[in-house]
Write a protein that binds this DNA or RNA. Structure first.
Lengths: 215, 215
DNA sequence: CCATCATGTCAACACCTGTACACAAAATAA
DNA sequence: TTATTTTGTGTACAGGTGTTGACATGATGG
């Protein structure tokens, strides 16, 4: 029932609505790659790329900011999906770190445009978009913290320290993401290098976490 | 002699050159705070804010991109100054971590606009500006790596691993920077909290680094 | 079928943009 | 002083921008 209502609200009764809405979102994503910024995009440009007249834009979004927020939503929805998959595969043991990093990199590669959008707008977007992204990352970090609390080694760690470790890892992950996005997709050698570095960094963090309780 | 040449090239022979050039740079910095972006600024807007007519802009910069590059230069010049000061104070011992973090935070606070500019343009700026910033950060990371190599505990660590540790710390520092910039200057409680977290994270990294060689 | 309503189109508006060109002012060099 | 160079001004143009309002189209529900 809930799903039906949602779907109705999404596509209404006109199949065109879904299509042009999607076309606008895709056009924006594509243009963010070419132009430097989402903020640098204009309503008219996006509409043109989507193959509709500027005024048609307003049938789907009140302004560009709303489109941006929709993209933030979309981006993190896919990221959460990845998290769910990883969680289903079990807690990351020492051995699993490497394969996790590589899985993640592949994921970033297949969703380049969404990740690029988030990376770019995280600090330079409009106030509301920045807030939305920050909120999502905070949530993400908290979820990771509770995941960490389930690791036997960290069972006794305080909530604040778990949060601290989680943010350390998220920092590392975002940095990895941005580095991956900055190299061409063909440069597999550099990509492997980045992966090895990230793996080492994660292991170092785990090492530090292991000897943390003594403090 | 070198200084004289540089100064001549900077200010030429007209004192006004220096002044309006500075006015343009300052206007851009100020507008980046208000607007979301450097890319979002227009030549005319900057000129207006600087109190000159649009065409006067061209007497100092060929285009906005050149102004942006000048700002990148300026920003990292001040950051390098800080590094020099810290280095002069000696290698950071365990005890010195806390005071270093607090010193750094104070530094970020007194140079808010420059740091904000860099944070925003790092990923969303024009191609050339992004490259310039990335280059500077790489240089910064390398310098930190050689600093680390001088710590007795890490004397035997490989160059690649030192680089890995350095980038881990730089990541943490940039993240701290961006978090500090995102809270109002009056919120000292939150600022202290961020400081404590960053200190813990640095200590954890050092702990991990200490038990790294066993690998 | 017809009436309704969501969606898309067209034309127009007032405004802002980057840049070119000719000219004025001001500082320097002789 | 006078001549020269640098810096700032004013005007103008072609083009892009967000947003309005009136109108066309096509699918949906009765």
């Amino acid at each position: 029932m809930d799903r039906k209502v949602e779907q109705t609200a999404e596509t209404r009764r006109d199949p065109r609505r879904g299509r042009t809405r999607r076309a606008l979102l895709d056009a924006a994503l594509e243009l963010v790659e070419k132009k430097d910024n989402f903020t640098a995009l204009s309503l008219r440009l996006v509409a043109r790329k989507a193959g509709v007249v500027p005024t048609a834009f307003y049938r789907h979004f009140p302004d560009m900011d709303a489109l941006g927020l929709a993209l933030v939503d979309e981006s993190f929805r896919t990221l959460r999906q990845l998290m769910r998959d990883v969680r289903a595969a079990g807690v990351p043991h020492k051995q699993a770190i490497n394969s996790s990093v590589q899985t993640y990199i592949r994921y970033v590669r297949t969703n380049t445009r969404h990740f690029q959008f988030v990376a770019k707008e995280r600090f330079s977007g409009s106030q509301s978009i920045r807030n939305a992204i920050r909120q999502e990352i905070r949530l993400f970090t908290s979820e990771l913290a509770t995941d960490l609390s389930r690791i036997p080694l960290l069972a006794k760690t305080s909530a604040e320290d778990l949060q601290m470790m989680a943010s350390l890892m998220v920092n590392n992950m975002t940095s990895l993401t941005e580095q991956v996005l900055d190299i061409p997709a063909e440069d597999v050698a550099e990509e492997l290098f980045l992966a090895r570095m990230a793996e080492k960094q994660l292991r170092l963090i785990f090492l530090g976490a292991a000897s943390w309780r003594s403090k």
